[in-house]
Design a protein around this nucleic acid. Structure first.
Length: 602
RNA sequence: GCCCGCGUAGCUCAGUGGAUAGAGCGACCGCCUCCUAAGCGGUAGGUCACAGGUUCGAUUCCCGUCGUGGGCACCA
């Protein structure tokens, strides 16, 4: 999924701490164990020193804290049974103060059981690192994540909401993994859709003054269009009123609704002159402002809002097309200008300039992506709706044709959201204005539940959004489960005389009293966080973080229910408080990446 | 027709080239004189769509079939 240069950075980060550090096993016990295995491998099979040593977390507690299938991997090349290899490897393992015991089990697995001290050490690691626990470091790589980028022709709907939640969480995740990330919204403020919105607004405006005009079925139907018309009427009276007869004069008798709409737009431009620009601009800024506020309230921020129109104004679109032409990648046919994208793996060639002389959206998109590359991002990530799937080949093809490295562009497709109300699928259409907006969803469900709910499905899976369930505020929503764990820990601290002091002291607390099974499980889960971040960032999979947080909360609730934290035994109480504090820290780190709040009480 | 997803417990979905495939919901049985019961423990529930192939090992990778969703504009 991720191209080579990207992987390289993560891999380097991964390897950077592979030197064994006996002083701080909690931070990289994995690498310590890998080092032990590699040392043993040097004795048992020097020729296999390059073999990748995989360590996994066994699903079963009886299989220890870490397991390696190294012996099974080597069986063939060494022509020896896996169990035999495993036993030899175990004999050659250097002694380690952090390993309680090593078993050979099953077909030849090597299972490591850590000492309690090694297992508990993660608590200190978390508390020492604080909000930096789990962070990676890939400082030298700049990424851009472009997402949402919905046409500013109406309120965002729940589908946009998914793209917003996914993109924002992905960007935050990559940032946490150590990349320099810039978030961008591409504003399609040029083109026909905006013209249609302006026309729709004007027609509603004329209707306010009683002009007898039919409202085209393929114009924007939403109530917000009427509102904009009313605003304009309130501010400018009938200044933009024109007789219906004049509007309709000269319209083609065609049955094609699109042709009729284009003719209406042309008529409006002619009748209004500069007034058209005003209405167009008014509609754009109204919708863009609405969109921006909506996203801000949703906790989704952008470093930049990039105007498509600016690409035209600065000649970038024409320049991009010229660049393709100079490379001999364009040809004329039927009056249009075509890009030979089939030469770059696309199914068919694509038009960049229409017969009527107007550039296609594709043309400006080429210019846009060239511009992204010019801005120096190492990797550019586009989050698109799944319906843009067919678009990838042509954009990458165009980039390749201009000599750019298309591998620097990563496209992630987010599948559709289907809404269900009363058990029935809600049909939605942007044009007809019949859809549930993101704002409505947020107001009814709450931002936290919304953000988390969107992350409960991997992005390439269609999401069925049950409105009734989401609106019901029921306990079924896992966000409460995770937040509740956080609130419970805060509640514990609130009962102490000096919560702040407890937090400071926890960093050096003696953890040896932590010896219960559930405490070990919780420590193990905390220790997984850094690698979870690493893998989720590599896979562009913020949903994995949501699932992890559910599991972490489950481990916490289970422990909390079984063991009392505020016991009389001071050393035990301190140790358990430290574990609770570490859990709270990881919950915070994870939830903040997902844009979900961490309430202190519920 | 071609291209891209997806088919895992009754439902909604995770997951993985390795040891007995997991969670939530639903069902059933339990747990508050005790740090928040928005919680916990337990029981039941599976031919990982089907058929081949690669492999020591496939639910995972490859081919095919079936089912299902989406895409195949001089729209954006």
């Amino acid at each position: 999924m991720i191209e080579a240069p990207f992987l390289h950075c993560l891999a380097r980060h991964f390897m950077s701490s592979s030197t064994p550090r006996h002083s701080a096993p909690g931070l990289d016990i994995r690498h310590h164990l890998i080092h032990l295995l590699r040392t043993a491998l040097g004795s048992v099979a020097p020729g296999q020193m390059d073999a990748e040593i995989l360590l996994e977390r066994p699903k079963q507690a009886s299989h220890g804290d870490f397991a390696s299938a190294l012996a099974l991997q080597l069986a063939r090349s060494l022509k020896t049974s896996p169990r035999q290899i495993a036993e030899r490897l175990v004999r050659e393992l250097p002694p380690s103060p952090w390993v309680e015991k090593v078993d050979v089990a099953g077909a030849g697995f090597i299972n490591f059981t850590l000492t309690a001290a090694a297992r508990n050490a993660v608590v200190h690691a978390v508390l020492a690192a604080g909000e930096r626990f789990g962070r990676g470091s890939c400082k030298d790589r700049r990424l851009q994540v472009e997402f949402v980028s919905a046409n500013p022709t109406g309120p965002l709907h729940v589908g946009h909401g998914r793209g917003a939640a996914y993109g924002a969480s992905l960007a935050a995740l990559l940032e946490f993994a150590g990349f320099e990330v810039s978030r961008e919204y591409y504003v399609n403020d040029a083109g026909r859709q905006m013209d249609i919105l302006a026309l729709s607004t004007w027609l509603r405006y004329l209707a306010l003054f009683g002009e007898p005009l039919p409202f085209p079925p393929n114009a924007y139907q939403g109530g917000y269009v009427v509102q904009m018309a009313e605003q304009i009427a309130a501010a400018h009276g009938d200044g933009y009123r024109r007789p219906a007869a004049a509007v309709l004069a000269g319209l083609p008798a065609s049955d094609d609704p699109d042709l009729r709409l284009d003719a209406l737009i042309a008529s409006a431009k002619e009748l209004l002159g500069a007034g058209w620009n005003y209405i167009h601009q008014h509609a754009l800024s109204e919708q863009l402002t609405d969109c921006r506020e909506d996203l801000e309230e949703f906790g989704v921020h952008f470093e930049s809002w990039f105007s498509e129109r600016s690409l035209y104004d600065t000649g970038k679109v024409a320049a991009a097309v010229d660049l393709l032409a100079a490379g001999g990648h364009l040809y004329e046919q039927d009056g249009a200008l075509w890009f030979r994208s089939t030469a770059f793996g696309d199914e068919k060639d694509r038009v960049v300039r229409r017969e009527n002389g107007i550039y296609t959206y594709f043309a400006s998109d080429i210019a846009y992506h060239l511009n992204k590359f010019e801005r120096g991002f190492d990797t550019v990530i586009d989050v698109w709706g799944a319906d843009h799937h067919g678009y990838i080949a042509r954009v990458k093809g165009a980039l390749t044709a201009t000599g750019a490295d298309a591998r620097r562009l990563e496209v992630t497709l987010v599948q559709f959201v289907s809404l269900f109300r009363d058990g029935e699928k809600v049909s939605m259409s942007t044009r007809s204005g019949e859809y549930v907006t993101l704002r409505e969803l947020r107001q009814e469900v709450g931002n936290d539940a919304c953000r988390f709910f969107y992350m409960l499905r991997k992005c390439d899976q269609a999401l069925d959004f049950d409105l009734d369930l989401a609106k019901s505020q029921s306990n079924d929503n896992p966000v409460y489960y995770v937040q509740y764990a956080h609130a419970r820990i805060c509640s514990l601290l609130a009962q102490l005389d000096d919560p702040a002091a407890a937090g400071t002291a926890a960093v050096t607390t003696d953890l040896s009293p932590l010896c219960h099974e559930r405490e070990a499980a919780l420590c193990q889960r905390l220790g997984e966080f850094p690698e979870l971040i690493e893998n989720a960032a590599r896979d562009f999979a913020p949903h994995a973080l949501a699932f992890y947080l559910k599991e972490l909360a489950a481990d916490f609730h289970s422990w909390y229910n079984a063991e009392r934290v505020l016991v009389d035994d001071r050393s035990l109480r301190q140790a358990r408080l430290a574990l609770a504090l570490a859990t709270r820290q990881v919950l915070r780190n994870g939830l903040s990446i997902l844009g979900v709040s961490q309430p202190e009480s519920m």
